[in-house]
Design a protein around this nucleic acid. Structure first.
Lengths: 348, 348
DNA sequence: CTGAAAGCGCTTACAG
DNA sequence: CTGAAAGCGCTTACAG
């Protein structure tokens, strides 16, 4: 099956290949009638430009790189989903890449990839987007970058983000409103700048309420389930344990929940638990987790948009803020503690 | 930064571009000394061939397509991880694709993608690999395909698989050995042929043991958490409820666990629960889930290998079987029911 | 507004 | 075993 080329289309439409190219790429300087006629032929013949020829002759390609630190985490899942949907709608393809920070030659390997791939753009997810040296490599290779939720040098590249700090405040205020005063906090992986922002939101909400957080109620985690489990064991062991624990992400919150179950502490009656992310697993827990819905899917889609329809370069880096949402479920809501049947999820 | 081209390398090595090409691609007909010398120059200059030029001039590209039905499921996560690691080691890149079966024009869209991408190979994950019409499209576009765990026409393409049926037998035998006789079963999504194989393994183990499974103890699920939850509610409502439930995957087993928690049924004392997959979340449950470890990461890596180092075409389709493993955890082990602290996971 | 020419960096097909 | 020529299917740069 021989694929159609731009020449076939040109012949059929009675114009030159260059004109077809103009129409396909939405360039200016084509008479409306001609543009329409060509577009019709393209559609009729179901013509699809050869991506490699495009990539070879122009500097930009149709491939968008999605860079993850840990492609197996639930966060990566959401981002992948959002990016995939949008990329496909825009005729782009997604190449998944990791950065091998654990190897001394990660720079060389990244450069190899970039040389070989000629990406039309790259999305950097946390915490990758916070590495100056890494961003410099993309700049050197002229690969446009959009960062998701970067924490440093925010004006260096376009970005999509949400207000982690305000979200953590909101969650803390929810717990305070439920009557909790001894609220424990499990910090996230220090490599992620979001960890600090969430901590600040928690701290501010507490002090604004007139409570100085008890450092014996603060534990360090690293965003993994296991770190949440260990943190909770420490926090709950004390003489005056917290009545609520706010973990900086859902996986850790699940760890806290497991520690509570293991210690036969009733949730939420004796211990309220809150997470952050609204990962799929937040609804697979028992009781279901109160959390902050991060618009990860939407942020990823927006990042694709920023790469594909780049706004004119007026020196100002676009920054798109997306809203978070407090999702209150049974893990922090005493009146619901006896609820036997979880609400059905909508869709999958 | 101007990337090196094959000409630069050729000049430096004192040979023609064609010879460099031969060395890079491991073709025959190059004197060993020359081969070595060229290889050295390539390494020294850190030369990376332009993937688009390659893709344009040859029919095959360095891109491998990874096709998912549901890229957000935990299974997809494991496969992605395995494929990513291997692909990167072999200098290939991974393009993630979904098939839009929910649209009437999914065929056209898939063909567009294939025309544009010129994939060097494709990995089809279940249940995508069981669609005859879909495989035909790949054949028409000359894209080599490796299927993971296909259930139909197994000799049509190379494949990587594990014995779901034997694994389900093993799990069932484990539950029988724990003294269970009234064992409930939650079937998986009928679109996945693995669902049937797991059911058969269960059925055989039961009948071999002399027990005809009680159909009131069998429920239909679809591999989602929610379906497991609903299935368990049905199974546990009966007059003579099962003392153990074997769910066809971990997400559903988690649903069963949640239903049990909601109904205040002690696990594993009053109800043992087993899953299938050994997804990450199997260890995030309380109690942790007994399950079958599917070598998803390894199967994905093996699939990449089959695509890259294709065995000579002697008419026999390669089929690689990987071993499963029974992983017994607290959800089915009464003696461990009082264990308060879950074992630390190794690594993340 | 439109098109003819040149070229992107490889590989294929062919010649020696 | 090695290389010169042609070509893959687009886009860039230029001319009109």
């Amino acid at each position: 099956m021989k694929p159609l080329t731009i020449k076939d289309v040109a012949r059929q439409a009675g114009v030159s290949p260059k004109t077809v190219s103009r129409v396909i790429n939405g360039e200016a300087h084509v008479r409306p009638e001609v543009r329409e006629a060509v577009a019709r032929v393209v559609a009729e013949m179901n013509y699809q430009p050869n991506a490699f020829a495009r990539g070879l002759s122009s500097t930009r390609s149709f491939l968008i790189g999605l860079f993850f630190d840990d492609p197996a985490c639930s966060y990566a899942n959401d981002v992948l989903l959002g990016a995939l949907g949008r990329a496909r709608a825009l005729g782009r393809h997604l190449v998944i890449e990791t950065v091998a920070f654990d190897r001394a030659d990660w720079r060389e390997r990244l450069e190899e990839s970039l040389r070989g791939l000629r990406l039309g753009g790259a999305i950097l997810t946390p915490p990758i987007g916070d590495r100056d040296d890494l961003i410099a490599i993309f700049e050197r290779h002229d690969v446009p970058v959009v960062r998701i939720a970067p924490g440093t040098h925010t004006a260096r590249t376009p970005r999509v983000w949400m207000d982690d700090r305000a979200a953590a405040r909101t969650m803390t205020e929810h717990l305070l409103a439920q009557g909790h005063r001894r609220i424990g906090f499990v910090r996230g992986n220090p490599q992620h700048t979001a960890s600090e922002r969430r901590w600040m939101g928690f701290y501010e909400a507490m002090t604004d309420f007139g409570i100085v957080p008890d450092m014996a109620h603060v534990a360090q985690g690293d965003f993994t389930f296991r770190s949440g489990l260990l943190a909770a064991e420490t926090l709950l062991r004390g003489a005056n344990p917290p009545s609520a624990i706010f973990a900086s992400n859902d996986e850790m919150a699940l760890g806290v929940l497991t520690a509570a179950s293991a210690a036969q502490i009733a949730v939420p009656q004796s211990l309220a638990i809150a997470g952050f992310d609204d990962a799929q697993l937040a609804r697979m827990a028992w009781p279901q987790l109160t959390t902050i819905r991060q618009p990860n899917v939407e942020m990823a889609a927006a990042a694709i948009d920023l790469l594909v329809d780049r706004p004119p370069d007026d020196g100002v880096m676009p920054a798109l803020e997306l809203p978070y949402e407090l999702v209150v479920r049974a893990s922090s809501r005493v009146e619901d503690a006896r609820e036997v049947q979880p609400k059905p999820q909508t869709g999958r």
